[in-house]
Simulated assay, not measured.
Amino acid sequence: MLETKDLTIRFGGHVAVSSVSCAFAPGTLTAIVGPNGAGKTTYFNLISGQIPASEGTVTLNGVDISRHSASSRAKAGLGRAFQLTNLFPNLSVLENVRLAVQSMRSGAHRRGMNLWSIWSDHGALTERARQILQDVSMTAQADVPVSSLPHGDQRKLEVALLMALEPQVFMFDEPTAGMSHDDAPVILDLIRALKKDKTKTILLVEHKMDVVRELADRIIVLHNGQLVADGDPAEVIASPVVQQAYLGVAPEATKEAA
């Protein structure tokens, strides 16, 4: 479904991501791990279109989307939670989710900006929005302005909006970062539920190895911007290259290259 070929980004003389080629199949949750500064979030930014690549391509369902904007990639089926954080902060939680649901319904693209005039005509949209809020345990916050939500609830709302947009590819960048001990399991349960849909592809950047062990079908490891390991979670976690990377020691291959 999703593939990167020789994806590279340079910032001046620094190569943050170097020729990463990887394919991600439907029905698979791939965890992207590596030490701080390994290039994980930058790789996500390249895939989702937040920054343009210096070299290489991103394809979705066989279509080259390398030159597409972030919003165009989202419409094509790439969903990244953090992109949605600031959607209508002065509207309520329910109104935000309802607008996201409405944008995905048949014919919404033909209505252009005429969303407000048909707001009250879609009880089904409101019902769907309420169901999504129930799924993310935010029913009690339905009427709360988004701008006043605490951090944990903002992260849950990100997932709710992402679910409303019904993407083909779900991209989660440390989804439980900064969340309380009580809130984090809600997000992880949502990801577990999304995994059951074998038509979807899930990418997960995560530092917590217990979460990775439980959720991942596959692990890829980035180190100094390079793809250094790819495979079964147990084997990858136990591999010397990963142990060295997490200890901050360059892999043997990197040492030899130097």
Rank of each mutant, 00 (worst) to 15 (best):
A38L: 07
V221R: 05
L2G: 04
I202F: 04
V228G: 02
G152V: 01
A74S: 12
G231V: 13
G34D: 04
D189T: 13
R67K: 14
R111I: 10
V97C: 01
I65S: 13
S18C: 06
M163H: 04
A160G: 08
R73S: 04
P26H: 00
L60S: 07
T201D: 02
I202A: 04
D135E: 15
E214T: 11
R213Q: 14
I118P: 03
M104E: 09
V221K: 06
S180C: 12
D143P: 07
I47T: 03
H68K: 14
R98T: 11
F11R: 12
P185W: 10
F82L: 12
K5I: 08
K156I: 03
D173L: 11
H122C: 05
K198W: 05
A23L: 01
N114C: 09
L215D: 07
R192G: 00
R213F: 04
M179P: 05
F24K: 06
S147R: 15
S48G: 08
S117T: 12
A140N: 15
I220P: 06
D135Y: 08
L125C: 10
T42D: 02
G56K: 11
A16W: 02
V236Y: 01
A25S: 12
Q134F: 02
A25Q: 12
Q83H: 13
Q102H: 15
N45F: 00
A253F: 09
G13D: 08
R105T: 12
M1P: 13
M138A: 00
R73E: 03
Q131Y: 07
F82Y: 14
V17P: 00
L133A: 01
V101F: 09
P251I: 13
Y246N: 07
Q244I: 02
P89N: 13
M171N: 02
S69I: 06
A25L: 05
A100F: 06
D135P: 03
A38M: 05
E55N: 14
Q243C: 01
H122W: 03
A124T: 03
M104Y: 03
L204I: 01
R128Y: 04
A250Q: 12
D153H: 15
V211N: 01
G62I: 00
T176E: 07
A193N: 13
N114M: 13
A257P: 01
N45A: 01
T41M: 08
Q134I: 01
T41H: 08
